[in-house]
Design a protein around this nucleic acid. Structure first.
Length: 468
RNA sequence: GGCGGCGUAGCCAAGUGGCUAAGGCAGAGGAUUGCAAAUCCUCGAUUCCCCGGUUCGAAUCCGGGCGCCGCCUCCA
């Protein structure tokens, strides 16, 4: 039984879909004002894990991830560079997609952009105005928070506290009736991109796009809505208020919030310039390493980003790679050869525990622990000369489970090609070793190393492998 | 000030009332090896930030400290 933690109820709940056999998920992607950093990639990996596991459980999953492609900073940046705002947006969307692929995240079913859904957004705002919970003022349209009694139910805030806190921080805007009201539609300023609306030229406020786009693709009541914890308030709180006020029904069943990625003890943030870009990371570390690192902590916990953490992840992931490659050498490619009827007992047991961990709010950290047990058991079996069919069926479990995590796809599915030059050196080294000329053998090994390969003397003879 | 969360071995990280407190990285010893690499075995918290309390029993629940983080303003 799959249980998922819901921010609104503050606990884990058994997962029951709105529509039997199907799951609708919406994750807040990014405001494409600058290039993606590692923090943005966590949502990509978390949404991907949810999708993979729900699909593994037999659900037909629809995943939607949005892009906010119009906001003050995008406009500002476009002005600075003297280009159209869409150019800035597109550039960063392309990068996001690139890193999504780098991280082994499958493409979502829809990637809606705010500017491509202006009509839907306007219609949504009109509904709110008709219901009397939103009002027009000077070309802006605001949601009147005081008209929505449930306001604060997600973030557990009381309106009075907000008003008290806001008085010190928020500039009073005389177009608002109340300081806590938030904007649904912003009147255009001179020279800004704008769209026609019943309230004159303008553009959508930030929160409304997610209500309009999520319900458009997933229906007015759907299963899972996710994003970083920083979005709980005000963004998701506002989304609930808008959507439930408009539709008169519950909006989302499971609010899923992942912890933030910190850098030297502080969250990464575009506005403070305190972040590592994905471009930087993807150049230095392989995809599986970054993904493994992001999955080695539970998604709801904060995670510290550092080179040391990634280096550890790299060492850890090599154990899996080594095993897949060793197995391929020993028992041949996957899908070929005789396979034993079931996995061996210890592997089957670890598999059961892995799935239990995943059922418990997608506890990938714990699941990975059990995956290492699978690795150890298989290595032990190799060491004790287990039969090939047994190794093949155990390997199938390793493949199944690492596949749920989206790790190691393509690793050990084809022995790597080693250049003739390296093979020649391996042969030369073997000859030197047979002549017990250790000095020469080591010298040849150094030359192999210099070519970026390393040689390992296995029970079946020397094997050359490319270094990282 | 208000709201939410965290504090587990050198580091990272599971575990949220009851078997020996997962797993990874680092380290030590051993097996194997000409030496390595890879792999396996053994070793580490008498204890879970501190102090009280509840309980037959607490890392896990309650109260109080201390420290850290996030949100309350655009942000995954």
């Amino acid at each position: 039984m799959l249980r998922i933690y819901d921010t609104q109820t503050g606990g884990k709940k058994e997962f029951v879909p709105v529509n039997e056999g199907r799951v609708g998920m919406y994750f807040c992607g990014m405001t494409v004002q600058s290039e993606p950093h590692v923090g943005h990639m966590r949502v990509a990996v978390v949404s991907d894990i949810f999708r993979r596991y729900l699909r593994y459980k037999g659900y037909d999953v629809t995943l939607v991830i949005n892009f906010t492609d119009i906001d003050d900073k995008i406009i500002e940046k476009a002005r600075e560079r003297g280009v159209d705002y869409q150019e800035i947006a597109q550039e960063n969307i392309d990068k996001f997609m690139e890193f999504l692929a780098f991280l082994g995240a499958e493409r979502a079913d829809h990637y809606p952009r705010a500017t491509e859904h202006i009509d839907d957004i306007i219609a949504f705002v009109e509904r709110l105005v008709e219901k009397g919970v939103a009002y027009e003022s000077g070309g802006d349209v605001y949601f009147e928070v005081g008209k929505w009694p449930d306001y604060g139910k997600l973030s557990k805030r009381r309106l009075e506290d907000l008003v008290a806190g806001a008085s010190e921080r928020v500039e009073l805007d005389d177009r608002k009736r109340n300081p806590e009201d938030f904007v649904l539609w912003k009147a255009a300023k001179e020279g800004e991109p704008s769209w026609n609306s019943p309230w004159g030229k303008g553009r959508p406020g930030w929160h409304i796009e997610c209500s309009a786009m999520s319900t458009k693709y997933l229906g007015e009541h759907f299963d899972i809505h996710g994003g970083g914890t920083e979005l709980i308030f005000p963004h998701h709180e506002n989304e609930i208020a808008q959507t439930e006020a408009a539709t008169g029904k519950p909006y989302v069943n499971y609010w899923v919030h992942h912890g933030l990625v910190n850098l030297v003890g502080e969250k990464m943030s575009k506005s403070t310039g305190h972040f590592k870009t994905m471009a930087e990371i993807s150049k230095r570390f392989p995809s599986d390493v970054v993904r493994f690192y992001l999955l080695s902590t539970h998604y709801r916990s904060e995670i510290e980003f550092s080179d040391e953490r990634l280096a550890e992840a790299e060492t850890a992931i090599e154990r899996f790679e080594n095993l897949f490659r060793t197995l391929e050498r020993l028992v041949g490619p996957e899908g070929e050869g005789e396979v034993a009827a079931g996995a061996s007992a210890a592997v089957a047991d670890a598999r059961r525990r892995f799935l239990e961990a995943m059922d418990d709010d997608l506890n990938t950290a714990q699941a990975i622990g059990h995956l290492f047990d699978v690795v150890r058991v298989i290595n032990q079996k190799i060491g004790s000369g287990a039969e090939k069919p047994v190794l093949r069926s155990d390997r199938a479990v390793l493949r199944e489970l690492s596949g749920i995590l989206g790790l190691l796809e393509g690793v050990g599915t084809a022995l790597e090609q080693v250049p003739a030059e390296v093979l020649e050196l391996v042969r030369a080294r073997t000859e030197a070793r047979e002549a017990r000329d250790w000095a020469l053998a080591d010298e040849v090994r150094d030359r192999i190393t210099a070519l970026g390969y390393r040689v390992e003397d296995t029970s079946e003879g020397p094997v050359a492998r490319k270094n990282k």
